[in-house]
């Protein structure tokens, strides 16, 4: 089953994790042009930090700052049992 964390409220983002054999990071953002790369980096850095590689991460961003993206991803990883 998919795991999610976060909401679609302004300044938040929703993270959805699905099973995958490799790491896939997909970002959809209302500010994709300016911040798409930054969001992707935060997601990848966080996954690196926790040593998680086999997962598909979708991020539906509504203008979240880095610490919010990071927090939502960590919450989803914990909910999905990818980390403790």
């Amino acid at each position: 089953m998919n795991v999610t964390a976060g909401t679609y409220e302004s300044s938040d983002c929703l993270i959805r994790l699905s099973p995958s054999t490799t790491r896939k990071v997909i970002v959809e953002s209302i500010v994709f042009d300016q911040f798409g790369d930054a969001i992707q980096r935060v997601l990848n850095d966080t996954l690196d930090q926790y040593g998680v590689s086999a997962v598909q991460v979708e991020c539906f961003d509504k203008g979240a700052l880095d610490y919010t993206v990071r927090a939502r991803l960590i919450t989803a990883l914990k909910r999905g049992g990818y980390i403790e």
């Binding site: 964390a5 976060g6 880095d66 610490y67 919010t68 990071r70 927090a71 939502r72 960590i74 919450t75 914990k78 909910r79």
Partner: peptide, 15 residues
């Protein structure tokens, strides 16, 4: 509850 805890932590660590 878990999401809030993580968000507050993440925020405080950065700001």
């Amino acid at each position: 509850k878990d999401a809030a805890r993580e968000l507050v932590r993440s925020f405080l660590a950065a700001h």
